[in-house]
């Protein structure tokens, strides 16, 4: 077994052993990370400001959900490095989440009807 051999090259794609293989790690710098931090902070402050500036209602709620999705996208793409991953991985993670967006729309519509029924 390759992982019992101390001299095995863990990055070797030709001699691929799934138990030890890792791609070569390289840093992408810290600039984008700090930029994302300030962006997340700014969006959170905007959230709180909008809470008091906008009238309560559906348009304010939709604004909050959109801002939340923007924040989540920056966390996933920059902090979790999804932007540097292979396209197949990106698709495997992002595409299933579209179903959740559909779930939000579906259940909000449904809840509106429960309200109408005055359960």
């Amino acid at each position: 077994m390759a992982h019992q051999n101390k001299t095995v090259d863990i990055h070797d794609e030709e001699n691929y052993d799934p138990t030890v293989w890792v791609p070569k790690a390289h840093s992408h710098g810290t600039r984008a990370l700090w930029k994302t931090f300030w962006l997340l902070l700014a969006l959170t402050i905007i959230d709180v400001v909008l809470y008091f500036m906008m009238d309560p209602g559906m348009s304010r709620n939709v604004t909050f959900i959109i801002l939340g999705i923007v924040k989540a996208a920056f966390i996933v793409y920059v902090f979790m490095h999804l932007t540097y991953e292979h396209k197949s991985l990106k698709m495997s993670i992002v595409l299933p989440m579209i179903g959740v967006v559909y779930l939000i729309v579906l259940l909000l519509k449904e809840a509106d009807f429960w309200n109408y029924l005055n359960w």
Binding site: E13, W21, P23, E85, H86, S88, L89
Partner: peptide
């Protein structure tokens, strides 16, 4: 079929 990592990351 297990020849390489299709996602280019470790399992």
């Amino acid at each position: 079929a297990g020849g390489k990592s299709p996602f280019k990351i470790s399992y």
